[in-house]
């Protein structure tokens, strides 16, 4: 595909200290901060505005939430370990960690859908039940879509995209690092979503 790469595809720019992809992902994450920030802003405004149920015990099951938090934190560690393994030139271990990350995130999604969404819908609790459930479904759903996107990207690097490792190790490792940055951000969002919806 490429005989010659654009400047700073691989090497860090002396001023910013990042290669193109990494800078791009960070900028994207800055915009994601504003996306979720707007939704958190909406949450606060709706909550302070009135007609917003906050009796936490009866709303959501915090045990499932805590379990999912744990799964996502673990997936974040395995993700960074995957990057470290590729960096240390151990692709076998790197792939293994990446697979574990995929499995953990699928487990997260499975629990979220099967034991939370389906369960609630079964109880006839849907987004239109109250603004609390509306914003709950909206924010966790959007977060779930982010998880799904991350899984697709990881599966790509484990299958179709894995050939890049043989062609250009550094570029491949960089891409895993970018995926990791995104993944940790998704984890970070959940770290805030969990107390906001399950505990407060």
């Amino acid at each position: 595909m490429s005989s010659e790469l654009l400047p700073h595809t691989l090497d860090a720019h002396p001023v910013t200290g990042m290669y193109n992809g990494k800078f791009g992902v960070w900028l994207f994450l800055a915009s994601e901060v504003m996306l979720f920030g707007a939704l958190f802003s909406a949450y606060i405004l709706l909550r302070t505005h009135g007609d917003f149920p906050t009796h936490k015990e009866t709303l959501l099951n915090y045990k499932i939430g805590a379990l999912n938090t744990f799964l996502l934190i673990t997936s974040s560690v395995t993700m960074v370990m995957a990057w470290a393994s590729f960096k240390l030139n151990d692709p076998g271990k790197g792939k293994l960690y990446l697979w574990i990350t995929v499995i953990l995130s699928c487990a997260f999604l499975f629990i979220k859908i099967k034991f939370e969404y389906m369960h609630k819908i079964h109880e006839d609790i849907i987004p239109s039940t109250s603004t609390f459930y509306g914003i709950y479904y909206c924010m966790t759903g959007l977060h779930g879509l982010h998880i799904l996107g991350g899984v697709v990207v990881m599966l790509y690097f484990l299958t179709v995209g894995s050939g890049l490792w043989n062609k250009n190790q550094q570029q491949f490792t960089n891409r895993i690092e970018c995926t990791g940055l995104y993944w940790h951000f998704v984890d970070l969002v959940w770290i805030f979503l969990f107390p906001v919806f399950y505990l407060l």
């Binding site: 974040s76 560690v77 993700m79 960074v80 990791g180 940055l181 940790h184 951000f185 984890d187 970070l188 770290i191 805030f192 969990f194 107390p195």
Partner: peptide, 13 residues
């Protein structure tokens, strides 16, 4: 949550 978030951002990221 902020402590957890900054740990993730500063170390993992």
């Amino acid at each position: 949550a902020s402590v957890k978030g900054s740990l993730v951002a500063s170390v993992f990221m």
